[in-house]
Design a protein around this nucleic acid. Sequence first.
DNA 1: CTCAATGGAAACTGATCTGTTTCTAGCACC
DNA 2: GGTGCTAGAAACAGATCAGTTTCCATTGAG
Lengths: 194, 194
Amino acid sequence: MSTSATPRERLLDAAGELFYRDGVNIGVDALCKAAGVSKKSMYQLFRSKDELIAESLASRGPGYQTLLRPGAEDDRSPRERILTVFERQDAMVAEGNYLGCPYVSTAVELKNPEHPGSVVARYFKQQLTDFFHRELAQAGAEDPATLAIQLTMIFDGASARAVVRAQPLGGIGAATAAALLDAAGVRAPELALH
Amino acid sequence: MSTSATPRERLLDAAGELFYRDGVNIGVDALCKAAGVSKKSMYQLFRSKDELIAESLASRGPGYQTLLRPGAEDDRSPRERILTVFERQDAMVAEGNYLGCPYVSTAVELKNPEHPGSVVARYFKQQLTDFFHRELAQAGAEDPATLAIQLTMIFDGASARAVVRAQPLGGIGAATAAALLDAAGVRAPELALH
DNA sequence: CTCAATGGAAACTGATCTGTTTCTAGCACC
DNA sequence: GGTGCTAGAAACAGATCAGTTTCCATTGAG
């Protein structure tokens, strides 16, 4: 299992999980032990711990996004595809062990916006905003750029609430996003009207 | 200056600032040095570093809230009083050196929701929600409880955005809050209608 | 002046931090 | 059987971690 992947993959996996679970201040020793890789190998594969932080965050990006965002084969309306993100976030929180959006958490912990990990975090947060933007443009929203940012903010706000309260969200994220979409005219099909 | 206050006050001040600026992993040595207090005195005044985290967070709570929330003497409408919070947040971000809501940041860094610091964070976040709730109730909002939570989420979402982007918010928080208030019927006075 | 309390400076414990180095076991290739 | 590469184990460096303890200068009360 753990030894089938290359040392690099094992390190990225272990780092992604432990940096998220315990914070970026977890020691390199504990990390290497969890990955079954020696410190020597680690420092041959990565220049520094800071680089490992950034690379592990980047390596988990695609998987995390697939988890949240509906695929291209999901041909529901843009509105429904957007709300899916919030519903999946809600489900992740409900499962427990949710410690916030990994990108926001890492950026908060690193403090320094120029840290390579912060740069990666910024990039992937923008990816989410871009997804919202595409869907909103397709739905014909009036100001998709602003609305996409607002939806990202609601996502991160729900995430912060989950961390602080340590309780399920109860659909409040999706409800807020829906309210904002309604206000912007990206409406649910009103079945009663036709 | 620094030595006029009691050792306890100096410690709480230094801790509040350094825990926020550098994270809760900053060492007790650096903290005591900044406060001009010996470690011996620190451990006589506080049982542990964890307790100091919680107490310093609590001690800065009232001041932080006064900074954000309009006072009782501000007799504008509930809607305007609510939006003031977002405008002041925006101003804090624009000043630079904004590293996110101290309560959310601390909770994120601590990971453990039962840590005394996390308990304090939860309490003060609830205080903000309660303020929104009172204002909304006075404005006659239909579902003030839900709306107050949503506004708090927007606040924390804007905060997360400021951290990740390390750039001014440009009023996006207040705009989102206003949109949500509009949708809920807590409207701005429409001068054109009378 | 004497006495007791306060609190800072700094040594100390033992653990942990990042990063380097040495040694050696395994393994493919010739 | 050799030879050279990979990579884990582990010791090491020098700094820092939380927390305790010793020592001493200051200070206010009697």
